[in-house]
């Protein structure tokens, strides 16, 4: 039984069958990659996990509980954090404040009226946030405005914000999209480091095969809304069906 169990999920947008009877199981403490050509339904599937989309049929169970019909913030509080294709951070706030918001969300839940406490008196939160920034090598940038960070650092900050919540499952939507090779390698190292340091399950949607094969322990190949095959990276590399669907005839 995986931490994330997807059974018979289908989603239709008008005439397009985006997802067709998808079954998927993400085992606890593994890195599971979902790959496939453009339009295979990867992002649609991810959006079904986080409450942005509700599938037409099927079930998505996280830790034994259904996530369907719940709002994004409720699903997050269940323990699913998400990294976006373009980093979503609080650009008007400082790096430190960005991470502190995650710490507050973890401690106080989805809403708490605390208008007369003072941020700078929250010793525990400050300590946690600082520790998190040390972990991702950003402590020297703590007072910088998030808007002025480089793209690689924005990604790093977004990961720090997700990790500060100590999620059970981290969803990554093309975490290296549009990055230079050096930044991509940094991100791979960061993710490996994260995986080493803590018990965390990751589900990655990715185009870049280099990233996928350096990180993933299991790979699901999606084509035209249907999972073709699920296996280890070594087996996927040589799989004829995958070559045909994903890499094209010429490969």
């Amino acid at each position: 039984m995986g931490i994330l169990e997807v059974k018979g999920v289908s989603k239709r947008f008008g005439g397009l069958q985006a997802l067709n009877d998808v079954n998927l199981s993400v085992k606890e403490n593994t890195v599971h990659a979902i790959i496939g050509p453009n339009g295979a339904g990867k992002s649609t599937l991810l959006n079904c996990f986080v409450g942005k989309l509700i599938p037409d049929s099927g079930s998505v169970m996280f830790n034994g509980q259904s996530v369907l019909g719940r709002k994004p913030h409720e699903i997050n509080q269940m323990g699913i954090a998400r990294v976006f294709q373009t980093p979503e951070i609080f650009t008007d706030l400082t790096v430190m404040e960005n991470v502190m918001i995650s710490c507050f969300a973890r401690r106080d839940g989805s809403f708490r009226l605390h208008p007369f406490e003072t941020v700078m008196h929250e010793k525990d939160i400050i300590e946690q946030a600082e520790q998190m920034l040390i972990d991702v090598n950003m402590i020297d940038k703590r007072e910088m405005h998030a808007a002025s960070l480089s793209r690689g650092d924005k990604r790093r900050l977004e990961m720090a914000m997700c990790l500060a919540q100590e999620p059970k499952l981290l969803l990554l939507d093309e975490p290296t999209a549009g990055m230079a090779r050096a930044d991509t390698n940094n991100t791979i190292d960061l993710l490996k480091e994260i995986k080493q340091k803590r018990d965390i399950t990751m589900a990655i949607i990715e185009h870049d095969m280099h990233v996928v094969f350096s990180l993933a322990e299991r790979i699901t190949v999606l084509a035209q809304g249907t999972p073709l095959v699920e296996d280890t990276p070594d087996n996927i590399k040589g799989h004829p069906k995958v070559k045909e669907a994903y890499l094209g005839e010429s490969a």
């Binding site: 994004p72 913030h73 997050n76 979503e88 969300a105 914000m161």
Partner: peptide
């Protein structure tokens, strides 16, 4: 600044 991020950070 960013309501989307806040929602995906578990804040209502």
């Amino acid at each position: 600044t960013n309501q989307t991020r806040l929602n995906y950070t578990g804040i209502n």
